[in-house]
Computed example of a mutant assay.
Amino acid sequence: MAAQDRRERQRAERHQLIIDTARGIAESEGWDAVTTRRLADRIEYSQPVLYSHFAGKDAIVGAVALQGFVEFADTLRADVSAAPDSASALGALARGYLRFAELRPAVYAAMFSMDTDLTFARADTPPALRTAFEVMRDTLGAATGTAHLETRTELAWATLHGLATLTAGNRLRPEQAHERLTLLVEHWRAAAPHS
């Protein structure tokens, strides 16, 4: 049994090495630089070994995205938990979201912009994706009430994604970042329907 355990542990370590290497290349050079050949060379395994773990690049991107959602939910939860009250938590959530997108652009792209087999808003949505949504939903609900909460959470998420994407593309005035976020949070609170 020890040999089987060792093989399983080595396989899990190789699997994670592929994910970490892809993520590292993507963060430093962009996703176009991530190829199965380059990954195989970088991790010093053959392409067939790489394909024994992942069907191709899209599957690797999906694995990076899935781990990104775990980190994303943890980041948002920590930011929200550090806030003194529900109104402050809403601002902390928005700032945490945008900070995550800024500090991890390749992971954020894998999570939200690239082709993966991850499903959203369905029964088979992976737990990590649901957890991130729930952190946003619960924070928004605590600050603004529960009426139409799922839909309002989707709108909040879409708005933050738009801000993150436009900011990354240098389409917004950087000196207005704080004011934009303040106005957005004030709008969420003022426009909240009664529960």
Rank of each mutant, 00 (worst) to 15 (best):
A142F: 09
G96T: 01
T116H: 14
T131N: 10
A89Y: 04
L76R: 00
A121T: 12
S81G: 14
E71N: 07
D79G: 07
L98M: 09
G141F: 02
A109I: 12
V135R: 00
R104N: 13
A132V: 10
D58E: 15
G145Y: 02
D85L: 09
V80L: 11
T131A: 10
G145L: 07
A143W: 02
T144V: 10
F112C: 08
L76G: 01
T153H: 07
R77M: 00
L98N: 04
V80N: 01
P126S: 15
L76P: 00
T139R: 04
E102W: 07
Y108G: 03
V64D: 03
T151Y: 05
R152I: 03
F100L: 10
G62K: 05
A82E: 14
A110E: 08
F133N: 12
D115I: 09
R95K: 06
D115E: 15
D74G: 00
L76C: 00
S113H: 15
L149C: 11
T131C: 08
L155W: 06
L129I: 08
D117V: 11
V70G: 05
F100A: 11
A63N: 08
S88Q: 12
V107M: 12
E71P: 01
A106P: 12
R130H: 07
E102T: 13
S81Y: 00
S88A: 14
P84N: 05
A156Y: 04
T144S: 14
G68P: 04
V64N: 02
A78W: 08
T153A: 00
E134P: 02
A143K: 07
A101H: 02
F72I: 02
L93E: 00
A158R: 13
G141S: 09
E150F: 09
A94Y: 01
S86Q: 06
A123N: 13
A83F: 04
H148V: 05
R130Y: 10
L66G: 05
R122V: 11
E102D: 12
G145R: 05
P84I: 06
